[in-house]
Lab assay of single mutants.
Amino acid sequence: DRIFMTRTEALEFLLKAHQTAVDKIGHPSHKQTPADHAAIEALDRLLLDVRARRVDQFQINASAAQIIVTD
């Protein structure tokens, strides 16, 4: 599946995904793992790359739809 978004929409989408990941590892019942921190770092890099126009398409994980940034 493909989803087309403007750059602004894609950045909002990534910010929400980032916040969800941060909230998940901050929850008291969740045991933090290196994979959790790696996922947040990957989202940080992706946010910067989309914002800087170095990336025009991405996929958060293998089961997610491919996001295509349109400007």
Results as ranks from 00 to 15, higher is better:
T33Q: 04
A17R: 04
E9D: 09
H18I: 14
H37Y: 13
T6A: 03
Q66A: 10
A21E: 05
L46F: 03
R53V: 08
R2D: 06
A10I: 01
E9K: 09
L43A: 01
G26K: 15
A21V: 05
T70F: 06
R7K: 04
R2T: 13
A64E: 13
R53C: 09
V55F: 02
F4E: 09
D44E: 14
L15S: 11
V22H: 06
I67N: 01
V22C: 06
T33L: 05
L46P: 00
G26A: 04
H30K: 03
E12H: 11
L46Y: 02
V69M: 07
E41S: 10
A38L: 12
R2G: 05
E12P: 00
A64I: 09
E41Q: 12
L47M: 10
N61Y: 11
D71G: 09
A38T: 08
F58K: 00
D71Q: 09
K31I: 15
A35F: 08
T33F: 06
I67F: 03
E41H: 11
A62P: 15
V50E: 00
R51Q: 11
F4H: 06
R53L: 12
T6P: 04
Q59R: 13
I68H: 05
V22W: 10
M5E: 00
I60W: 08
A42C: 10
I67H: 02
L48F: 12
D71E: 03
V69Y: 02
I60E: 02
T70L: 12
H37F: 15
D36C: 03
T70K: 11
T6V: 03
D1H: 10
D1N: 08
E9R: 04
P28T: 05
R2C: 06
R54I: 11
D23I: 07
E12V: 10
A10D: 00
V69T: 02
T33N: 14
E9G: 07
A62N: 13
A17D: 00
A52L: 14
N61E: 13
D23F: 03
Q19Y: 05
D1L: 02
H18N: 02
E41C: 07
I67A: 01
K16V: 10
R7E: 02
P28W: 02
I3S: 03
L48Q: 14
R45C: 04
T20V: 13
